[in-house]
Write a protein that binds this DNA or RNA. Sequence first.
DNA 1: AATGATAATGATTTTTATTATCATTTAGTA
DNA 2: TACTAAATGATAATAAAAATCATTATCATT
Lengths: 148, 148
Amino acid sequence: MDNINKKEFKNTFIKCIEEKGLRHTKQREVIVDAFFSAGRHITSEELFNIVKKKYPEIGYATVQRNLNLLCKCCLAEEIKIGKQKTRYEQKYGNMHHDHLVCLKCGRLIEVNDDKIEKLQEKLAKKNNFTPIKHKLEIYGICADCKSK
Amino acid sequence: MDNINKKEFKNTFIKCIEEKGLRHTKQREVIVDAFFSAGRHITSEELFNIVKKKYPEIGYATVQRNLNLLCKCCLAEEIKIGKQKTRYEQKYGNMHHDHLVCLKCGRLIEVNDDKIEKLQEKLAKKNNFTPIKHKLEIYGICADCKSK
DNA sequence: AATGATAATGATTTTTATTATCATTTAGTA
DNA sequence: TACTAAATGATAATAAAAATCATTATCATT
Ligand SMILES: [Mn+2]
Ligand SMILES: [Mn+2]
Ligand SMILES: [Zn+2]
Ligand SMILES: [Zn+2]
């Protein structure tokens, strides 16, 4: 079932690059594969190191560029926490969610709250503001770090 | 009445640097003054340009350093939106608030919603997470940009 | 299969924001 | 006044991400 999702993810990517008149390459294949399989919230550097194992000739720039492309295709999303390197989260088939950010261990905990989402809509409307997306991050100490 | 606030702001700063065993300088005086008087959400560069008028010999590094110091004193707070330069918001006497961020003109609209704040606390607690601070940004199109 | 237009790659450089360095000056005190 | 250490200002270093560019690869067309 994970493979079905992966196939869908890759198909969506292929459709997207075709729509843009871009080309299919071995590098893209390997990068998108690795990005889907890797955990959430990966940096370009981490992905580069993974991809290098399958494709040692790959350049960092290619990984970075294709992560940007995945973002344009709405299959990835940038996450910027403080001064850390940008992380990329895979989006396809994943519900929107917000993050609890542990200030001790850096962990990102994914959360969701419908009521908050609704109230945000309301808040925007009250200001005659058309919301497109949002970012909610709660910084603090996670359960694990507290019990240590 | 604005001057009273300014006096309070500056006194808080003076108290803070004395507690830290730091020194009072003409540069600090001018920078803190300008920072308080300037609008919200200023960049270090913008502040530098303002301060230069009163004190042409000032160095950029000094402005940057003192903004960082103001943050340590909890009199300023960094705001990072996308890839923009860090902006600094004055905090003393200002309620916590969140931001609506216009994707067209870049404007930051300050908003507040008690219900959302409460629900965030609840959400954190549900995850056994101790919240310390949070960031909520809603990106979209502001009223002005819509009417143009 | 060969061609040609152009997108993609990989190595490298550039950009840009922020922090660090360091010689010199200055503040605070004894 | 003199001493100690913080602060300053000019500059360099750092680091992440984007841009550049010569070369290679893709793909529609022949
Ligand atoms: Mn996530
Ligand atoms: Mn604000
Ligand atoms: Zn933690
Ligand atoms: Zn606007």
